[in-house]
Design a binder for these strands. Structure first.
Lengths: 300, 300
DNA sequence: ATGTCAAGTTTGTCTAGGACATATTAATAA
DNA sequence: TTATTAATATGTCCTAGACAAACTTGACAT
C-alpha cells in the first residue's frame, strides 16, 4: 500500500504544481484527494503524485485542466496516446538512441550523438536529430517507456556534444554579441544551447549567462558584456502570464538599443505581440533574425 | 524612482523566499512593505527586493530573521561586514581568480583553474582552491563586489575543469558504485561535482544523476544502476525541515542495502541524527566513508 | 470554408488571519 | 562545564473568497 505520503510543499517541489493550484484543483475537480494527518494537513499518496506528474506534463503540452485533472491513471494514459499521436516508430533512425538511453550506455550514446553531428552538420543535426529526439523522449516518458533519470542522461550527453562543438566555433569578435539566459523559474537549458549552437554557426558571438538569471542580473551582464541582443528561452513550464510579465519587466529595464529575442515552446503558443520583443518561433526564424541584424547594423 | 514593481510570485522566483514567508514577515517584522495595486495585490518595489536578496543570503549563512529582516539596506551591509569577517584579502593567492572573474575573462579563468588543479592535485585543489574560492565569491557577492552573473561565470568554468578531470578518471569497474543527485528544490551542483571528483580519485565508480531529481527517480536509478550508495548534496537554500523530510522519504523507499550519504553546508549545521543516513561533514569524511565501505564490503 | 469579434467559462494566483510543529535560544539543574 | 527543560522564533500549512487573464464558444461577415 502507499505508505509513502508527501505534504503539499513536497508535492509542489516534486511536480512543479503550486500549492495554491493543488488546493484549488481539489476544491474544483475533486482531485487530488489527499488524506489528512492529525493536524489536518494534506498528505498526498504516491499514486496521486504519479497522476499529478502526468497531468502536469499533459497541461504543459496544451491540454486544459478540465480535461485531465479529474481522470484516473488509465484514462490519462489513454488521453496521452491521443495527444502524442500514435507514431512511436515515426522516425526509425531515432530508435537507436532510445535503445542506448534505455540501456544506460552514456558513453556509447555520446559517441552516436557526436557522429550524427559530424554526419549531418549542425543545422540539420539540430532540426532532424536533437529536436525530434527530445520530443520523442518526452513522449516516451508520457507513455511510461522512459524514466526521468534516463531523460536526464540524454540531455547530459547532448549538452556535452553541443558544448564542445560550440567551443570549437567560439569567436570573440563575432557579431551580433548575444547574451543567452533563462528567467527565474525556467530550468530548461537545452533550448538555449541549441540557440547558442545555431548562432555560433552564423558567426555570432555568444555569451551563455546561464539559467534562472534574475532580471537585474541579465541587465547588468548585458551592459557589462556590451551585448547587442539578449536571447531568452521558455519551455512550457512557465505560464503565458509569467512569460509576459517577465518579458515586460526586462524590456523596461534593458537599454533600448539591446534587442530581446524570445524563443522556445512556451513562446510558440503566444499570440499577443510584446512591445520591443522579437518572438522566435523556430531555428530558421533565429537564423533570419541574425541575418537581419547583420544587414541593419553592419554599415555602422 | 522605483518604477519597477514585482508581484509576490515574481519575488518568490527572484529571491527564493516563499510567498507565505513574505506575507508573514510583513505581518511580524513590518518588512517588506509592498505597495498595493488596484486589486489590493502586493507590489514590491525594486529596492525592497534588493534587500530581500541580501536577507536571504544572510539567513542562509545562519543569521536569524529577527536580526536582519527589519533592517535598512545600510544596516544589512554593516551586519554582513560582521558576519563575513573582515578578511577580504585573507588568501591573497585567490585574488587573481577574482580579478579574472571581474574582468569576465572566461577562458583565462579556466586556464588558471586547470593549472592550479595540476599544480596542487585534486584533493588539495578542492580544499585549498575551489572551496575557499567559492566562499570568497559568496562573501564578495554579499559585499557587493561581485554580481550573480559573475559568480555564474566562475561556477561554469570550475564545472568544466572538474568534469574533464573526472572524465579522465572514469572507471566503470570501481567500487563503491555511487549515484550522485540533489533533491527537488536544491539547484547547487558544484558540491556534488566536488564529491564526484573526490570519489573518482578514490577509485569509486560515480554516476551523476543530476540535480532536482524526484525521490522515486533516485530510487529507480539506484536500482537500475545497481548502486551501492546514493550521495546527496544540500546547500543552505533548503531548510532543515525540508532536508529531514527528504532524507526520511528517500530512506523509506530505497532498499536497505543501499547507503545514503548526505553532505553539504545544509547538512553541516545538522545536529539530530537521521536513521540510516550517514552525514558527511567534510571532504575528509567522504574519503573516510569510502574507505570504510571498501573495508566492510570487499570480502564479499 | 475562413476570419473576427463579443460573450461566456475556465484557471491560476492572489487575499486575510489563524494555527501549530520544529528549530533555536535562554534558563535552570546536575 | 554540561545536560534538561522552558520559552521564543519561525516557516509552513489551513480555509474560503475574489478576480484578471487565458481560453472556448457561437454568431456573424467575408
Amino acid at each position: 500500500m502507499g505508505v509513502n505520503m508527501l505534504n503539499i510543499g513536497a508535492v509542489e517541489r516534486e511536480t512543479g504544481i503550486g500549492k495554491d493550484t493543488l488546493r484549488v484543483w481539489e476544491r474544483r475537480y475533486g482531485f487530488p484527494v489527499p488524506v489528512r494527518d492529525e493536524r489536518e494537513d494534506r498528505l498526498y499518496p504516491e499514486e496521486q503524485v504519479d497522476c499529478l506528474r502526468l497531468i502536469k506534463r499533459l497541461i504543459d503540452m496544451g491540454l486544459r485542466p478540465v480535461k485531465v485533472v479529474g481522470q484516473t491513471y488509465p484514462a490519462l494514459v489513454a488521453l496521452l496516446e491521443d495527444a502524442v499521436g500514435r507514431h512511436p516508430d515515426d522516425q526509425p533512425e531515432l530508435q537507436k538512441y532510445v535503445q542506448l538511453i534505455k540501456g544506460h550506455q552514456a558513453s556509447e550514446l555520446r559517441l552516436a550523438l557526436s557522429r550524427a553531428l559530424l554526419d549531418q552538420g549542425m543545422t540539420e543535426y539540430l532540426s532532424k536529430t536533437v529536436a525530434p529526439l527530445g520530443h520523442l523522449i518526452g513522449e516516451s516518458w508520457l507513455r511510461g517507456d522512459i524514466r526521468v533519470f534516463e531523460e536526464h542522461l540524454y540531455s547530459e550527453q547532448v549538452t556535452l556534444v553541443l558544448r564542445s562543438a560550440i567551443e570549437m566555433m567560439r569567436n570573440d569578435r563575432g557579431t551580433p554579441h548575444v547574451l543567452l539566459a533563462t528567467l527565474p523559474g525556467e530550468e530548461h537549458m537545452l533550448g538555449l544551447l541549441m540557440v547558442e549552437a545555431t548562432l555560433s554557426l552564423q558567426g555570432a558571438r555568444c555569451t551563455m549567462l546561464g539559467g534562472q538569471s534574475p532580471i537585474n542580473e541579465i541587465v547588468a551582464a548585458a551592459i557589462a558584456h556590451q551585448a547587442d541582443v539578449v536571447a531568452l528561452s521558455f519551455s512550457a513550464v512557465m505560464t503565458p502570464l509569467q512569460i509576459k510579465d517577465g518579458l515586460q519587466q526586462l524590456r523596461r529595464v534593458l537599454p533600448q538599443r539591446i534587442l530581446i529575442w524570445a524563443g522556445g515552446t512556451g513562446v510558440a503558443r503566444r499570440r499577443s505581440q510584446d512591445e520591443g520583443v522579437q518572438l522566435i518561433g523556430s531555428l530558421s526564424d533565429l537564423i533570419n533574425a541574425a541575418a537581419e541584424w547583420t544587414k541593419n547594423e553592419s554599415p555602422t
